[in-house]
């Protein structure tokens, strides 16, 4: 029994929140690595900055262990985020948590921007950095939606314990799929990892996975359908080498096939690419003046914690330069 204290939201004593009455230099949307590092750099530049985030910490919280962030050989995603959040809290950046941004509004020809929340609150700012990250991609096969929450899962560390002693499937071949398979192999009876091509994961992870004798890999195999009655009972797959179909019985399917950017709310305002990522230039600038974007939500290649954090720093510095050019 241990405790995972979440330092961000509970020190209610001196919790700093955002002020509706003032005009911010910069409002950051998102509290993952990109958003937090944007705020850190902006605050150090002396900007009046605030963060609005649905959940402080972002996707990294769903990661059981991070082993590729420079300076830390291995720590849990949560520990890393705690360090990030503590660092930002040291600088007394106001944070509005558990609120969702609905849209950004431009105000005529002025350089003012309005950040509008789902609950109707509006905050004023001269610039915005969008760091809303990404969410799990769905397989898009019949039965997936129907059995979502009835066997089909998208968070291995959350839902893994519910499948203790059972047989489960992991869909995907990248780092997060292999990590999920490793986590699940420790608690379930058997894990079958299914991927439509070859593994894309880091070799070091593939080697770790190979050490478990209750893991079976089915590569070149495509999931066609999730089947079941009240609960899912298995998946129908196509083996691409032999062109044969088979049914693999399983109580759970963990989908780890990559991520989709959280950009829908900006689709009418900003240029997105064909993958729905926000298009940015070398300074993180979007197609609209005064609006920047950082991290997983953008069209930068390779989505990683260190990339998102670095991207946030870049945006803050670019915003700082931008603010010097406008009439406030």
């Amino acid at each position: 029994m241990d405790v995972n204290l979440n330092l961000s939201s509970n020190t209610s004593k001196e919790k700093l929140t955002l002020d509706k009455e003032i005009i911010y230099d910069l409002i950051v949307i998102g509290g993952g690595p990109a958003g937090l590092n944007t705020a850190l750099y902006a605050k150090r530049k002396g900007l009046n900055v605030g963060i609005i985030a649905r959940d402080l910490g972002g996707q990294v919280l769903d990661t059981s262990s991070v082993e590729n962030y420079l300076g830390f050989v291995s720590l849990s995603g949560e520990e890393l985020m705690k360090k990030f959040i503590n660092h930002v809290n040291e600088l007394k950046v106001p944070i509005l948590e558990y609120e969702e941004v609905e849209t950004i509004r431009l105000k005529d020809s002025s350089s003012l921007r309005e950040v509008v929340l789902k609950n109707g609150l509006v905050f004023n700012t001269y610039s915005v950095v969008i760091a809303t990250g990404s969410k799990p991609r769905r397989l898009g096969v019949p039965g997936e939606k129907e059995y979502s929450g009835k066997g089909v899962c998208y968070c291995a560390i959350c839902d893994g314990p519910l499948f203790a002693g059972e047989e489960v499937i992991v869909a995907g071949g990248g780092n997060s799929a292999v990590e999920a398979a490793i986590d699940l192999a420790k608690i379930t009876k058997k894990v079958t990892i299914i991927h439509r091509s070859q593994f894309r994961a880091d070799q070091i992870l593939i080697d770790q996975l190979a050490k478990f004798d209750n893991v079976e890999s089915k590569l070149q195999t495509q999931i066609l359908e999730v089947q079941g009655d009240k609960f899912m009972t298995g998946v129908k797959v196509l083996n691409k080498n032999s062109s044969t179909e088979e049914i693999i019985e399983s109580a759970g399917l963990f989908v780890e096939i990559g991520y989709l950017p959280n950009s829908e709310i900006f689709a009418d305002l900003l240029e997105l690419n064909e993958r729905n990522e926000i298009v940015v230039d070398g300074h993180g600038k979007t197609s609209v003046e005064g609006i920047y974007a950082a991290g997983d939500v953008t069209d930068i290649p390779y989505k990683q914690i260190i990339m998102s954090a670095g991207d946030g720093a870049k945006c803050a510095l670019a915003v700082n330069e931008y603010l010097n050019t406008i009439n406030k």
Partner: peptide
């Protein structure tokens, strides 16, 4: 325990009379 320590804390603080205002 685990992550639920956080809900325990926030509910204790609420019940103590230090309540968070909703919209």
């Amino acid at each position: 325990s685990g992550h639920e320590i956080n809900s325990f804390i926030s509910s204790v603080i609420e019940v103590s009379g230090n309540s968070q205002k909703l919209s």
